[in-house]
Amino acid sequence: MSEPERQNEQEGQVERERERVLELRAVSKSFGGLRVLSQLDLVVHDGEIVSVIGPNGAGKTTLFNLITGLYRPDAGDILLEGRSVVGLPPWKITQRGIARTFQTLRLFLNMTVRENVMAAAYGHTKATWLESMLRLPRARREEREIRRLAEEKLGFFGERLVGYRWDQPAYSLSYANRRRLEIARATATRPRVLLLDEPAAGMNPNETLEIAELIGKLRDDGGYTILVIEHDMHVVEGISDRVVALDHGVKIAEGSFDEVATSPRVVEAYLGVRGAKEEAA
């Protein structure tokens, strides 16, 4: 399927009403006197790729931290598949189906590549420590299953993270491979929604291109609904079904990439009032 065809089809799909997988209702968050997010509404439909853009300090990462439960919103509600997740601890929210990657990579560096992914399967395995200690059938079966799961998730990235890489410590990976491993680890939690925090940061143009393709593949083959923070506008343009622009914690634009990119308020947020005027002139 060529690029334009796929986009046309996606736009057609967005118009139809689909299940609201993730929904934020009037979510606000302040740190002391600083309002990081105010009255934010956001809906992500099933199978959608939504990009969040905005200048530094706009509240994008805070948004992710709120959704995953690292912070608790001051007001508003966050719904996953119609059920509120506010107040749940982060591990429970991830178990319910929201997994994330981190902008500053947070791998388990001294564990092997495979172990990194296997560890993330904790939430959907059930063997207690006693079963593991006695090597009871359930523990052994689960161990086999998540081993296969880990290898399958790592296989998603082609040749890069398979074979001899499985048993290498995560710290031996290159920067780009670490980003891939983070994504593999997040998918091993069996999420419904993937939150990717700047997946292309620090990558070279080739790798950036590849990541953009990969995000599409994650949606199409993996079936994940994806919310992504990204600064690289080429990536945003290439992957997004919908773009949401934030500035100072307020949603200033929402819509297709072209709509958002040409919105005067977005241009103003990025370039300042004077810059925006020059741009218009």
Partner: peptide
């Protein structure tokens, strides 16, 4: 071991730290 490496990431990856 995951929580030794990075408690926050462990918690975000379904582990009740």
């Amino acid at each position: 071991r995951a929580l030794r490496e990075d408690p926050l990431a462990a918690e975000a990856m379904t582990m009740p730290v």
